[in-house]
């Protein structure tokens, strides 16, 4: 139950201590699974997100420059201005909950997404009062067996099949199954984020600062309100010459805009922006994605000014503070607190 505060804002004090429900937690799932045989993991492992995973190798993938003829450093016209009304981020937590059969890992995952909106007093609050939280068990249904899946369903445990029904899973390495599950979990998190972004863009008037790219979104990637800010640069959308340009970007400068198009994703306008000075050429550098329709240089400058404005307050003590907006850190902390 939420309450209204004295100032009429949505209450920040909840009556119940229960986290947002969103499904059975890992212990409840383990209780159900234990009744159907199998074994627990040898030692209770930590979150799979902390384990090493298969990482896409870094690469250059030069994109088409749409502002001028080649990638160059541009001075942004105008001072930073805070315009974003919300900050969107999501989290995921997954653990191997059980082995219903030998070599068959069942992954319990919590995925959550939230938008933190900025009120007039510059404080952040959860948009619509609550995050989206989902808890589910990820496993290949074909291998788990119908009886187990039915029992889980009867106990209120959501089950996500990690493999297409027609795909044979019997000859998969358990780590591969874990990888497949993690992929599914990641996709589910992206779906939650997209859902929120879509609803925001359909109902709100202020820009939404999205942690990560927006090209994966369907409707929101075409909305002028969604601003994607990418912090990691495993793929650089420049060529060798463009790399030199990026390295030379001064804080507050941006690159020329490009058209970024990936398979299965929406084509967006994108450019690099140096938030802070750092010795590392990619340090303090973010890549911004906005909808391509209606894009021009003025818009690139304006959006850059919005993003530059979010450098304060610094997102310390997060290690990524040089490229992270405080609103995104706040959103992550919030999600960890309520769903982590």
């Amino acid at each position: 139950m939420t309450t209204l505060g004295r100032n009429g804002r949505e209450g920040r004090v909840r009556e119940s201590y229960a986290a947002p429900s969103g499904g059975a937690n890992v212990r409840e799932v383990q209780r159900v699974l234990a009744q159907h045989g199998g074994s627990a993991p040898a030692a209770r492992g930590g979150s799979l997100e902390t384990h090493s995973t298969t990482i896409t190798p870094p690469r250059l993938d030069a994109a088409q420059v749409v502002e001028g003829s080649r990638l160059e450093a541009r001075v942004i016209v105008g001072a930073p201005v805070a315009a974003c009304g919300g900050f969107l981020d999501g989290i995921q937590r997954s653990v191997v909950a059980w082995y219903p059969r030998a070599m068959l890992p069942a992954i319990h995952a919590t995925v959550a997404a939230a938008i933190r909106t900025r009120a007039h007093d510059r404080t952040l609050h959860t948009w619509r009062g609550a995050p989206l939280v989902e808890r589910a068990l990820y496993l290949p249904v074909a291998l788990a067996g119908a009886e187990l899946v039915a029992a889980l369903g009867a106990a209120g445990v959501s089950v996500v099949d990690t493999l297409p029904p027609d795909e044979h899973a019997g000859d998969r390495h358990p780590q591969e199954l874990i990888g497949v599950a993690r992929q599914a979990i990641q996709e589910r998190r992206a779906q939650l984020e997209e859902r929120l972004a879509t609803e925001w863009c359909a109902t709100e008037q202020l820009p939404l600062y999205v942690d990560g790219g927006i090209s994966g979104f369907a409707a929101a990637s075409r909305s002028p309100l969604a601003i994607g800010v990418v912090k990691s640069h495993r793929t650089l959308y420049v060529d060798a010459e463009g790399m030199a340009t990026l390295a030379a970007l001064e804080p507050g400068q941006r690159s020329s805009a490009m058209r970024v198009a990936s398979r299965g994703r929406t084509q967006v306008a994108s450019w690099y922006l140096r938030l802070r000075a750092e010795g590392d050429p990619l340090g303090g550098l973010v890549r911004i994605e906005v909808a391509e329709p209606g894009f021009n240089s003025e818009r690139a400058d304006l959006v850059s000014r919005w993003v530059l404005a979010e450098r304060e307050p610094a997102a310390l003590p997060d290690a990524r503070w040089r490229v992270m907006a405080y609103g995104i850190r706040d959103c992550e902390e919030y999600l960890r607190a309520v769903a982590g």
């Binding site: 805070a82 979010e310 307050p313 405080y326």
Partner: peptide, 11 residues
């Protein structure tokens, strides 16, 4: 001054 001008207040 910059700290107090930040668009978001710290938690």
């Amino acid at each position: 001054d910059r700290a107090s001008d930040a668009p978001t207040r710290r938690t």
